[in-house]
Structures are given as C-alpha cells and as structure tokens.
Design a protein around this nucleic acid. Sequence first.
DNA 1: ACCATTAAGACAAACGTTTGTGCAAAACTT
DNA 2: AAGTTTTGCACAAACGTTTGTCTTAATGGT
Lengths: 328, 328
Amino acid sequence: MLNITPSAVSRALHNHPRISDKTKSAVKKVAKDLDYQPNHLASALRSGKSKLVGIIVAKTNSYFFSSVVENIENELNKNGYNLIITQSNESFDKECRNIDTLLQTQVDGIIASLANETITFEHYNKIKEKGIPLILFDRGENDIGVDYIGIDDYASSNIVVNHLVEQGCKRIAHIAGYSHTRIYKNRIRGYKDALKKHELPEDEDLLLEGSLTIEDGRAKMTELLKLPELPDAVYAAGDYAALGALQVLKEHNIKVPEQIALVGFSNEPFTSLVSPSISSIYQHNKEIGKLVAKQFLLRVKDKNYKPVLHKTILEPELIIRDSSRKHD
Amino acid sequence: MLNITPSAVSRALHNHPRISDKTKSAVKKVAKDLDYQPNHLASALRSGKSKLVGIIVAKTNSYFFSSVVENIENELNKNGYNLIITQSNESFDKECRNIDTLLQTQVDGIIASLANETITFEHYNKIKEKGIPLILFDRGENDIGVDYIGIDDYASSNIVVNHLVEQGCKRIAHIAGYSHTRIYKNRIRGYKDALKKHELPEDEDLLLEGSLTIEDGRAKMTELLKLPELPDAVYAAGDYAALGALQVLKEHNIKVPEQIALVGFSNEPFTSLVSPSISSIYQHNKEIGKLVAKQFLLRVKDKNYKPVLHKTILEPELIIRDSSRKHD
DNA sequence: ACCATTAAGACAAACGTTTGTGCAAAACTT
DNA sequence: AAGTTTTGCACAAACGTTTGTCTTAATGGT
C-alpha cells in the first residue's frame, strides 16, 4: 500500500471530514487501480448493516406483486441495497419461516404483503423486537402498527359500483374475498355502502365470499346463475375470479356486458387480452413500489423517527373495458 | 454460558466428531433455551461462504422465469441458501451491473439467463475468475463453458411443425426471435429442417425475425397478411408475439384455426385464457428450476469437479389448444 | 507401570471492515 | 511567543464466527 492504516483508508473512501483531500484522492486512485472491491460481509459484520432487504409476498408470479417488487428493487438498488425475495405461497407457516430466515440473514429491514391465510400477527413482533424497519403493502393490517402503503379498497368498490350504476345496472353482485382479510372486508363495505348510496336493495344472495381463484370465480358465477332473479352486473374482488366468471358466462351464452356486466380487480395483464376485455381496478403498481422503497429508506435513515406512523393510501383507478361498457 | 469456549460451541452445533455427545446435547439445549440465532454474517466472513445465491433473469414478471425462480428457491432454501433476485430488463448494461453487485455481495454462486441484448460474454468471466459456480438456464450460450439447463429448442420446432402438418397445414410461417440468440437460432433451424423433412418449400417471406413482443407479433402478422399467398399456419417463437398475431387475425376476421392455425411458445398462463386458446410449447418450468438448483448444489459441494461440463436438455412438450386443433 | 494412542476441548488467530480514542503537527488566537 | 483549537492520521478493539494447533486427560497395549 502507501503507508497508511486501514482506518484511514476506510475513512478516505467514506469521505470522512477528518481526512485530507490529498490522501482521499490518493486512496481512491489506488483503489481504482487495484480494482478494490469492499467486502460487504466484513462491513456488515462490523457496522451491523447488511444492506440487504427482505421481501415477503404471496406469489412472485402475479403481475401485481412482481411489478411492485420490480419498482422496489430499482429504488433500493440506487441506495446500495439488495433484495432477498421470498414467497409465502399464501401459507401462514411459510410466512413465519420466511421471517425467521430473513432475520437470520441479518437483513436491514423487511417489506411484506400478508398471505391470505394470515390472521394472527405475533410473528411480526419478532421483526419489531429486532428494531429493524417493517413496511407492509397491499395486504397489511392496521393491528401491526407499522407503515403501510396500499390503495383505498373502500373507494375502489365505490368507483366500481358508481360505474356499473351509470351503465344502467341495478342488481349488482359481488364475488368477494374472505372478509377476514382487511382489504377484502373494505371492498365489501364499500360495495354495500355504495349500494345504499344509490338506494339499491342489498341482497344477501348477491354477496359471495371465496378464495378468488379462477375455479372459485367459476363456482360463484354458477351459483349466481341459479338465482331466481339474475344479477345484471358482477363485481369480482380479483381478476382471476372475474375470469372464471367470464368463462361461465360465455358457456351459458350470456352476453357480456349487455346481459351481465363484469368488473374485476388488479388489472392483471390478461384482463385486456381476453374477449371481451375485462374492466378492472388499477392499483398503481409502480407507485406503490416506489413509495414502499422511499418509506423504507426514511425508516432506516432515521431510526428514532418511530412515533409517527405512515399509512399511504392511493386512489384506485378503474380501467373501463368492454366487459362493462354498455355505451360509449 | 456453561464454561465452554466459543470454538467448542461452534463445533458442537456443527456435529464435529471431536466433541462428546454429552456436551453436544448440552450445548444444543442451551441454544434452544436462549433462542440462539447464529450470525450469518460472521460465519460468512470467517468461512468465506455467504449462503447467498444471485439470480439474474430478464424479467421476474414473466410466468416462465418466475416459476423457474420459485422452484430454484424451494430447492435451495432446503439447503440453507437464500436468493438474491435481480433483473436485467433485457439490457446488457444492467446485466453487467447486476453481476458486479452480486459479486460485491459475496454470493456463493450465480444463476443466470441472458438478456436479449447480450451477445458478448466477457462480463461472465469475472464470475469464473472468482471461482464461484455459474449456472445458466434457458438463454445460455455454449461459448461461456458453464453448466446449462434448458429445453431442446431445435426439437420444439420439429414438434410444432409436425403437429401443424398433421393438421393439414402446408404453408407454415415462423415469427422468430433474433437469430443472434442461440435459442431462437435453434428454433429457426428446427423450423427449416422440419419443413425440409416434410418436403415443404422454404419461403423466405414466411420467416420473420423480431423482438417477440405483442406489438412485434402484431406487426409481423400484418406483414404476413400482405403476402400474395397467405400462410395457413403461424408458429411464433414466443407467446406474446402469438397473442399479437391472434389479435390481428381476429381483427381481420380470419378464422383460427380453420383458415390459419397458430402455435406459440412458453405456455404462458394467458394462452389458455384467450379465445381461441393458443397452443404452445411447455418448457418444463418446474423441472428446470429443480435441475438448476441441483446442479448448483453439486458445484458448490465439489469445487474440484470442474472438468466435466453439464448440459441438461429437456424434451419440450406441445400443449395443443384450440388455435391449432382442426379436428379431434 | 510405562509409552502410545485417542478423545475432548482450550487457545488464539483470522476473516476485512468500522469506529472511538489518542496524539502529534499544523493552524489559529490574542 | 505561549496557549488553544483544529487537522490528519495512527492505534487498537471490535463484530461473531470458524479453524488449525496445542494441551490435558483418558484409554489402551504390552
């Protein structure tokens, strides 16, 4: 080297004020020449910061999650963080194990969206006890008491119902998610309140909770078609369920949207590909990813910033497609 | 503690033969009681193994990649490894940067699928120089000289052409990927050779290279429809291109498969959702993921195992759907 | 009973940084 | 010119493991 201690080198590379500009530039030059690669592990060990962020989502191969993650990655990479992505597969157990794994890996923080199965939250306390930031998005709970970014599910339902009423629908069914998950509960509340607002009768037969898979959508639509009085619109709380419903409608030669209009949720890519294309709620995937990343950065930069909780709620946007457009 | 040195504890937890069973169980009991969590960073620093594996794919939000990654994750998690997932966005530059980032993070190995833009491979030498395993899948190159897992692209084209000929098609077009990428080149070769085998004339107008996006598929299909003599089948080397083609065909009121049959590639979920559903080549996503993981584990366990190169080529499977089924 | 072998674990160095403290020289103050 | 502050860096400890070597005690062989 050039007669200098490791500590001086470290400080030089980090632009410590107590190092002269001359040695700084000298050190940096040598670093370049020798193609010096800092050892992240050693740095992490000593400083306690691994520069790794853990992510837990239900499934990476859903468009919504993968595009949120993509945007989180872009933001955090800029700040020297890398992502460790795990998936819960909607399983509570796997979610718990993922948390353990991530904590063992000494991540600097965790970003998560809850599994469908998750209805208790003690496992998240481990994270809080460790003192590292935890940010939830989309499927988060108020009970955990951490920062959250998501859309206004209640408002989404309002927008959907308003739109359907505008199209002339008067008997609107809702294929809902399980109401133990907050977001689905809110969508149900929004649906009911919107009906009231428009002075439409609330019919229990028109509200069906389920897992929102394609199969579930098919089953629920089949049930709806057995009703003595058919609905003239179906609002599904998930695109896959909407797709299942659409399949059943086509099999029964029911015209969409003329006889029954259809609206989904999440704006999965296929909604614009099927025919008729399915109207759906866009959840601002990109925006959510960016906001999550920014919120995370805020938290790691300012550890003592605890007291204030940030809940960011985005306004949803209805993408109107053929499945619910009765007139231009 | 219980009057024992850290070294003894470490060895006890790792079942070192020179530690008595008595102390081993004692140590493990205390570890349980105290909820001891080993510090991966310290372990990584000392042992030189981070237990992290880097992944580079073009896009996580493609179904093929995300399901491969999902299966890699499952396998590697069982062996104590965690994944750092990065995406190149099909960009050569981003791919280079990803490699640098991963190496800096001291990953124990890298698993990658090349970006479309990538046509030179020096940046992968950095990985080999570091002496850590590199495994390629799907989009890999023979030149790099590393283990590879993928499907037989040449055979895929054969299967597709055979199927189309069986359906009575005699003028088969191919919307191809750029031939500088090996897998697309092989699909083109397979396509040409299969035509020869069936003694069908090879028509240059029927072979169009492109990026295989939806838009590209639309453009290429539009071109094909301008030909004086229309094709009676289109084989697209990617599902998105096939979808674009299908859109154009429907807009021109051309019956699929009666007038023009259509086959795609990758078996993306939407292929079964659109109407008509699109026949497509299934690439054994799960199998690929598992094989990649196993190959990686082989390599890290046996560093000196270098000389032999493993190329695993899976047989593709054609999923026949409505878009190419002229009779049952 | 003496030497050889094995067993069980202690000891200490090492991995490559970061960081608090100490200390000399330089710069500034009056 | 003497005291005070600032500057620039050296020193050394520390992060929590892993691992090669050494030591002591126990076991075995003759």
